[in-house]
Design a protein around this nucleic acid. Structure first.
Ligand SMILES: [Mn+2]
Ligand SMILES: [Mn+2]
Ligand SMILES: [Zn+2]
Ligand SMILES: [Zn+2]
Lengths: 138, 138
DNA sequence: ACAGCAGTTTAGAATCGTTATAATGTAGAA
DNA sequence: TTCTACATTATAACGATTCTAAACTGCTGT
């Protein structure tokens, strides 16, 4: 399956027609090697630079919102200032660089195994995620 | 040191005079046995119920803000909807109940020891915190 | 006591990220 | 081509947070 076909599939599985605006958005989000962590304003800026025809903020918000609700994007909360999204939808951990505001993934092999010893009666664990905040030395 | 003296001390160490509004706020925040996790609207509601004289939202925001910047409160981000604050300022872990939106602390003894194996050159680790999201069974 | 003054509280305005609305545009089906 | 459902867009509305500027409080020095 070509990458373009995959993008179309993601959109169709979200009940979104693969229009040219939505495809542009999906190319920025998913046509890349590494996980992409972004805010809406990051994404809007990239789209404005890359694309001749402007895509309205409303379309960007709508598309990201639907992709998130269909499980193709994940929301990450670091601080209250702005919402981050993540193209890596798996349960995973992050470094947050307080100097650059950059988010980076890390994986189970980069951390000792986590076992929760406290039991929560009547509750089910949905996710266990670690946030490591880092900053420049000195 | 009495609890009231401690409240005054917290305020003074934040360069805030212990006025009656600020003391009311601090009583709600710090005069309790267990850690308190709250949003500004939680706090405002409690203050409105408890106190005869209303305290303006501006004063609540200002006081919480300064207490946070002086390290007497900690900000916790769970989702983008609203900012949580925490009277437990230590590095610690949380359960978040997705049904009730309640935050609960848990401690190092409730989880296996966490070792980060990935190295981040030139960076210093400021905090390592785990967020466990839980929801009702069924 | 009282004027002066620094610091405080407050209501409301401003801001900003996000969501909703409603008018206009587009493209596939018949 | 016409019809029609769906998309896109500009802009308004919204809600949390921050800012502002005016009124208030309570020391301080006389
Ligand atoms: Mn913040
Ligand atoms: Mn949310
Ligand atoms: Zn990630
Ligand atoms: Zn806590």
């Amino acid at each position: 399956m070509t990458i373009e076909q995959e993008l179309v599939k993601k959109l169709r599985s979200s009940n979104l027609r693969p229009t040219k605006q939505r495809l542009e958005i999906c190319r920025v989000l998913f046509d890349r090697q590494k996980t992409f962590h972004f805010t809406i304003s990051d994404l809007a800026q990239i789209l404005n630079e890359k694309s001749k025809n402007k895509i309205s903020l409303a379309t960007i918000y709508n598309t990201v919102d639907v992709l998130k609700s269909k499980g193709h994007l994940k929301e990450i909360s670091i601080n209250s200032d702005k919402t981050f999204f993540d193209t890596n939808i798996s349960n995973h951990h992050h470094f947050f660089n307080e100097n650059t505001n950059e988010l980076t993934d890390f994986y189970d092999e980069d951390i000792s195994q986590i076992k929760i010893k406290k039991n929560i009666p009547g509750k089910k664990i949905k996710s266990v995620e670690v946030l490591v905040k880092v900053a420049n030395n000195n």
